[in-house]
Design a protein around this nucleic acid. Sequence first.
DNA 1: GCCAACGTTGGC
DNA 2: GCCAACGTTGGC
Length: 158
Amino acid sequence: MSRAKQFWLMKSEPTVFSFDDLKARHLSTDHWEGVRNYQARNYMRQMKKGDLVLFYHSNCETPGVVGTAEVTRETYPDHTAFDPLSNYYDPKSKPDNPRWFMVDVKWKEAFLGMVTLTEMRRTPELGRMKLMQKGQRLSVMPVTKEEFEKVRSLGMTK
DNA sequence: GCCAACGTTGGC
DNA sequence: GCCAACGTTGGC
């Protein structure tokens, strides 16, 4: 019997890498590079193939969830940490002892309309989401199955 | 652009 | 190990 599917929220700045950018990639799939926070990294290392992701646009005019993605490859070293020319270079991460990791995600479904942060805050069932907690800034965080499905249903009933 | 809330760094 | 200084995130 396979393990239960898990659910996540991943943030990306749309001017850097948007949901449409993911869709436009070969096979609508890309690696999730650049996570440089230990807690977010640890969550990412728990991700399993088939887990579903809420794709969140952050640090933009209207932050919110724009659609869903699926984990297609589990944790492996983030090679951008080894590249001195990368914005994500970290000399303390070595190929023989990597500090940072990534997963691959595949674009899955665009919502009919964005579920904005404001709208999520107004939704009682989403009140306990980590995203709502003051001061939390993780770019990768778990959500419950119920939260995932609530956000998706809001996004698909626009 | 502002700034609250973190996380990280490094001197001691 | 403490903690001040600094850097980053991300909503507003």
